[in-house]
């Protein structure tokens, strides 16, 4: 049975925190369309020291063998870009997204 996207996102966040020492925050981006398995999970990941490139999604395929039943988009931003998003200087709206819940390492 498929896990839902929210649970999958939480598991991905744990794995990413475990492997990325400079990862500071992860947010699930909305909308999370549970009805369409082709619609990717979107994770905003804040990484200290990364190259600043604005909102640039990078795609990964579904991999049911690893418990990831949906494609995933990773949007990596710097702490400054993260602040810009929170202050509406940098917008997710051009992609039709908004900031969702923060996901934890634990």
């Amino acid at each position: 049975m498929r896990s839902n996207k929210s649970d999958t996102a939480r598991n991905l966040a744990k794995a990413h925190f475990a492997n990325e020492p400079n990862l500071k925050h992860i947010h699930l981006l909305e909308p999370v369309n549970e009805d369409d398995p082709r619609d990717p999970i979107k994770l905003l990941e804040v990484v200290e020291g990364t190259l600043e490139r604005g909102i640039e999604p990078i795609a990964f395929p579904a991999n049911p063998g690893r418990g990831i039943d949906y494609p995933v988009l990773i949007i990596e931003v710097s702490p400054k870009e993260y602040e810009d998003i929170r202050n509406n200087v940098l917008t997710l709206k051009s992609h039709g997204w908004s900031m969702g819940s923060e996901l934890s390492a634990g």
Binding site: L51, R53, I58, F60, I74
Partner: peptide, 15 residues
């Protein structure tokens, strides 16, 4: 190619 290193690599190549 599903690791976070790929994110960094792609961002580097794009930059």
């Amino acid at each position: 190619d599903e690791s976070r290193l790929i994110v960094r690599l792609i961002r580097l190549i794009r930059t």
